[in-house]
Nucleic acid binder design. Structure first.
Length: 515
DNA sequence: TTGTGTTTTATTGCCTCC
DNA sequence: GGAGGCAATAAAACACAA
């Protein structure tokens, strides 16, 4: 805490001396804060300290952020209330698609309740994020689709289910939530833990009851079902003509196609797939996305690359100018950095902006310093172990990387669970543009940032699903073909030795170096 | 490239509660 | 009186249109 505080203050000093510019929080920090805020609108001093420490911020900053965040919520709630009349008209469509619980989440009475509830009381009661959703929650959830997305793999909408379980987990020992591959992040920062990083699976949503569709998908996938998404290497059959003309008419039978729809349907994606480099990752991502609005994916990678230099030039000086200035430990900031920077692709306007505003900046600033520092120190230093032993070294990164993998170019859009439909419907042109822009940046970031890329690749390597391509019991994890992924995703021409296969780090570094 | 609008962050003052 | 929160304000950062 003090370290971080000092760190922060020193940084602030340094920056303040030159100019008293405010510092944007990194996406990682934003994410952590948002996540935390999602659970604790009014964190205690202890929590703040903890969070501040984890994020490398000062308590003051954290407090201020929460304060502003509450104000923001309030304001948004107000706006929401103003727009309520209009929303009510279409509430039938708006509410919780596919879950059948829409009425619960959008009741006008909830709003009234909120108005009469002391926020602190509300928070202390754990109403936020719980089943007993308030309008504020809904507003937040809509806005904060980022967290939704993150949870999309942890649990597409685990807000309700996980919260109750986790509500009082702040002081609980990080138990290491099982992540999709069965690996347990052995060490998850408290702040992280409290942010409900429950990689309980992409398809774990608001309970089975709430998402029969998801259950159906699971059933359909059978043994091929992977908690955190489709299997690497799965090739979905081409869609029959006109497969998408009918919108999830029968989700129980069409989910299979939906899962691949994003990949197959979008010409941009198809183009992307042809693109050497991100294609595999992209596939990985897209396969997981079950995206329904592939039309929004119209971001040409070439376009990314064209603009890349421009973006680079726009980058501000690194927030953390030097790795040495950072604590050696794995801070939450660290942990989040890889993933969250790419992650902030909220559905909401607000969150969208976060992604836009912070995503790139955070990446650049941190990638130059702490990431290489800590990340390499942990994962790259012994990526083999990281691979072999799950995610011991990667901690939250792994959990986050679940998300990272999903966000190379677009946010998670779960057609079953999210409020995307509504969001999209409500998105202004600008929002959409921003959203797309944000997605674009995210993808670009992942191309630009070696560490992120490595993270992606490693994650991808870990995601090769044994049941499909290997016998999980027989095949060693080292055989998860990281090199294969590398080749396909990085277009690394060189062949890798066995050692390289075992030690993806070197290969990755090499690849990244080439990159 | 520039102007404009929006969002985010930081600061400050006031209020309430213990 | 101190701590914590809220609200107002300023300024920076950012996106976008002209």
């Amino acid at each position: 805490m003090e370290e971080s505080g000092k760190l922060q203050s020193e940084e602030n000093k340094g920056s303040m001396e030159t100019n008293k510019k405010r510092k944007l929080k990194t996406p990682a920090q934003i994410y952590a804060l948002e996540k935390f805020y999602d659970e604790h609108k009014y964190p205690t001093e202890e929590m703040k300290s903890e969070l501040a420490e984890e994020l490398g911020l000062t308590e003051k900053q954290v407090s201020g952020w929460f304060c502003h965040r509450r104000l923001k919520d309030k304001r948004l709630l107000k706006d929401e209330a103003c727009a309520n009349g209009r929303q009510d008209i279409s509430s039938g469509v708006v509410q919780d698609h596919g879950s059948g619980l829409g009425q619960d989440s959008c009741g006008s009475t909830k709003h009234g309740d909120y108005k009469h509830l002391d926020p602190k009381e509300v928070e202390s009661r754990g109403l936020y994020g719980g089943h007993d959703l308030l309008v504020s929650d809904m507003a937040f959830e809509r806005r904060n689709h980022y967290s939704e997305n993150v949870c999309a793999m942890d649990d597409t909408s685990s807000e309700s289910s996980s919260y109750l379980q986790d509500k009082d987990s702040y002081d609980a020992e990080p138990s290491g939530y099982p992540i999709p591959n069965g690996a347990l992040p052995s060490k998850i920062p408290k702040a992280t833990t409290n942010m409900r990083y429950k990689p309980s699976g992409y398809l774990k949503v608001k309970g089975e009851i709430e998402n029969p569709v998801i259950t159906a998908v699971k059933k359909q996938l059978g043994r091929n079902y992977c908690e955190d998404g489709p299997l690497l290497g799965i090739e979905f059959d081409p869609l029959p003509p006109g497969a998408f003309e009918c919108k999830i008419a029968d989700p129980f039978h069409e989910t299979y196609y939906m899962a691949s729809r994003a990949v197959k349907c979008s010409p941009e994606i198809s183009a992307l797939k042809r693109q050497p480099g991100l294609s595999d990752i992209y596939d990985l991502y897209n396969a997981k996305c079950n995206s329904q609005d592939s039309h929004m994916e119209g971001e040409d990678l070439a376009d990314f690359q064209d603009k890349k230099p421009q973006q680079h030039s726009k980058q501000r000086p690194p927030l953390y100018g030097h790795a040495s200035r950072l604590p050696s430990r794995n801070s939450t900031l660290d942990l989040y950095d890889h993933s969250v920077r790419e992650a902030p692709s909220y559905n909401s306007r607000e969150n969208c902006r976060v992604g836009i505003k912070h995503g790139f900046e955070g990446l650049k600033s941190d990638s130059a310093s702490n990431r290489s520092d800590h990340y390499d120190g942990n994962l790259a230093a012994n990526p083999k172990d990281a691979l072999l032993h799950g995610y011991d070294y990667v901690n939250l990164k792994n959990v986050q990387s679940e998300y990272v993998n999903l966000v190379p170019s677009k946010p998670m859009r779960n057609p079953f669970v999210s409020m995307d439909t509504k969001d999209r419907g409500g998105l202004s042109g600008r929002m959409i543009k921003e959203k797309m822009s944000s997605e674009k940046r995210m993808a670009r970031k992942q191309c630009d940032d070696p560490d992120t890329l490595r993270m992606l690749l490693l994650k991808a390597a870990n995601r090769v699903d044994p049941p499909l391509q290997y016998n999980a019991k027989e095949d060693h994890i080292a055989e998860m073909q990281p090199h294969k992924i590398l080749r396909s995703s990085m277009e690394v021409s060189s062949s890798f030795s066995e050692d390289e296969t075992v030690n993806p780090s070197s290969s990755l570094d090499e690849a990244i170096g080439c990159h």
